[in-house]
Design a protein around this nucleic acid. Structure first.
Lengths: 326, 326
DNA sequence: GTGAAAGCGCTAACAG
DNA sequence: CTGTTAGCGCTTTCAC
């Protein structure tokens, strides 16, 4: 049999469809008695409201889309998990979309989904600021690991985090460090480099940048070779994946980590804890980041185009075996 | 301004709404000239079809829901990625849902989503066969890493895989092995144990089972202690996460892997390659598994209740440092 | 407190 | 080849 509708429930309960509708969405405006009756027939028939019909009329879909620039990056797992949990707490569905590092693909997916979701969570978006603003004009948007003036965002405190990295490295005696840059159009890559350079200058240390590199383990080889060529005693990689690749290549070339070279990553992914040596990395409560982002999307009026909240979450430098005295 | 509808496009192009509709969904049944005109006005107005309205009428949503029993398990990442890619190839959206190992939560989410999606991908479902059949009565369903008579499914060939594991271990001289079981209501856990036991018997080896254990790194401690107590020289853990936890605990207790004990996992997650020693594990093309599952869901008539295709994909035993001579 | 009726945006007959 | 006309399932005025 076809899925029952409010009409079926209405006739079963001997009331009008509008009463059935109210019994579900506006319990206060129906007498307790009829409400009981309606709910009973509904349960008996196995009635479930059709989300599309509801959305068509109300414009609310109880769905948020999370667009991730590269779903294969373990870094996002915690973000996704946090977002998913918070969304479900409010009975929202999380729609996951992978942009595969392609701005064009990201844009198209967003445009396609725009009429069907209540808002967007954009994780490490590769889109230019202007496009992001256009999207925010249509739907509420919360940026994750990305800041754009005027738009709501949640990020980790990389300025402070990079200061911690530099402090840690200089305390170990390192005087020159090289940063292995992330993708060219990554805001995060630019931010990390700026913060690192700034922190290095204040600490009287030299920081150079090479790259960009695609932040994958497989790129660690090229990155490591470049870094060695640079001659620095400490390497700060754009993320843990790249850092792990670097360590592998270094070891392969007969160098010892951290005796010969120290390596630092970003994100504190699971593998950072199990690789050898353990990877010193700048972590943070990524699940919280996902949680807060959904919170913002659901509660704040992210539609308005000014003074959106920008939440900055603390980082923590997780010390493991990959860093040591220069 | 509110989002333009087909009415806006129709009046702008000087045609009827149905013509606009056809221009988009049935290009062949409109003259090239009018089609051009419609598309031009649509583009000018920035018109986008409303998926809800379309779904309400047609019953097709171009969306498939993938329900994952525990999204924090890295094993699923590849599945998700493969499914996402295949879905997008057909312009389908992947809706990701986390069941957090709770059958009740899984059931509720599925019921809620049923009217809004074209089908379900159920990864390692914790639901009893009967519930799964009920779901399949409502919507097309493809099971991943789970088999139920009469339902479509995609699984890795664990029978052959376990044979490979046992062959590998016996060739190294191991005569007793212990299996650290996964969750109680996990079909995969039962399947692996059955296949392992069978293969062990045929090889003239002893296999015992202890557990169940929640397949997380944190449970590796208890699992390792239990295994040591058992006295076996080789440990086969329900998955890589558990195996890694076991190795950590073993090392902590002063044992050497693989000199004192060999450890084998399942899934070949990323961390298995970077931990020390590298983890010997039964892998397979997990992305393919996701890909094939979506393929099945989209092409096969999974609605009918008999003779559904059950695809079995090959496994590969990835040898790393965690296994050695007894 | 409850019912009748009008749509939300779109598609699918059915005519022409 | 194109226009007219019903709805899809639900919510929401507006009466009663």
């Amino acid at each position: 049999m076809a899925r029952p509708t409010i009409y079926d429930v209405a006739s079963a309960a001997g009331v009008a469809t509008s009463t059935v509708s109210r019994a579900f969405t506006n319990p206060g405006r129906v007498s307790a008695a009829t409400r009981e009756r309606v709910l009973a027939s509904a349960a008996e028939l196995g009635y479930r409201p059709n989300p599309h019909a509801r959305a068509l009329l109300s414009g609310r879909h109880h769905t948020v889309a999370m667009v991730v620039s590269d779903i294969t990056n373990p870094h996002y797992f915690e973000l996704i998990r946090g977002a998913e949990m918070r969304a479900r707490m409010s009975e929202y569905t999380l729609l996951l979309v992978n942009a595969e590092e392609s701005p064009r693909m990201e844009w198209e997916q967003i445009q396609r989904l725009a009429p069907a979701v209540d808002g967007f969570l954009l994780a490490a978006s590769r889109l230019p600021d202007e496009n992001l603003r256009q999207i925010a004009d249509q739907r509420p948007v919360v940026l994750m690991s990305r800041e754009v003036p005027g738009l709501a965002s949640v990020v980790l405190d990389h300025v402070e985090g990079c200061r911690q990295i530099v402090a840690h490295l200089t305390s170990l005696g390192h005087r020159e460090l090289v940063y292995l840059a992330g993708p060219r159009n990554s805001w995060m890559a630019a931010t990390r480099w700026a913060a690192l350079k700034e922190a290095a200058e204040q600490a009287g240390t030299t920081a150079r940048r090479i790259g960009p590199f695609t932040p994958k383990v497989s790129q660690g080889g090229a990155a490591a070779d470049g870094a060695l060529n640079d001659g620095a005693s400490a390497i700060v990689a754009h993320n843990d994946l790249l850092a792990i690749g670097v360590i592998q290549r270094l070891t392969q070339r007969g160098l010892r980590v951290p005796a010969d070279v120290s390596v630092v990553g970003f994100d504190n992914i699971f593998a950072a804890d199990v690789c050898t040596p353990g990877l010193t990395t700048l972590g943070g409560a990524h699940a919280d980041l996902g949680r807060v982002a959904v919170e913002l999307l659901l509660t704040a009026d992210t539609r308005a185009n000014d003074d959106q909240p920008s939440v900055v979450l603390p980082t923590e430098l997780v010390l493991r075996g990959s860093t040591g005295a220069a």
